[in-house]
């Protein structure tokens, strides 16, 4: 039977994988995918807590809002990455080093 700790374990694994992707990837699109993993790990937590918790729908509603906001955020981020690609002809984050000081 799938219980709350199973969900929490998967969520923690997703969070760790997302953080690993953000810290190790060079391609900006891959970094955004890592960010999505982090946000979805929180979503999984919220839905699992709502399912096994006091029985209210606050967690599930919160997760829906997070999904919507994450979509908007990624749309803005992709537009900025597209501008970066237009200016530098590369999506590589290592080459965005004008602000290095």
């Amino acid at each position: 039977m799938i219980t709350l700790p199973h969900y929490l374990t998967v969520s923690a694994a997703l969070f760790t994988l997302g953080l690993l992707g953000v810290l190790t990837r060079r391609n900006a699109v891959n970094v955004l995918m890592g960010i999505e993993l982090i946000l979805n790990s929180a979503n999984l937590n919220l839905v699992a807590f709502s399912r096994f918790g006091p029985g209210n729908l606050q967690g599930q509603l919160f997760a829906v809002f997070v999904i919507v906001i994450a979509a908007a955020e990624v749309a803005v981020a992709l537009a900025i990455v597209l501008t970066l690609y237009r200016l530098r002809r590369t999506p590589n984050l290592d080459e965005a080093d004008f602000l290095r000081g």
Partner: peptide
Amino acid sequence: LYGLSLLYGMTGST
């Protein structure tokens, strides 16, 4: 957000 989800899990409310 991950921390907020744990807070919701602990307290049962947002």
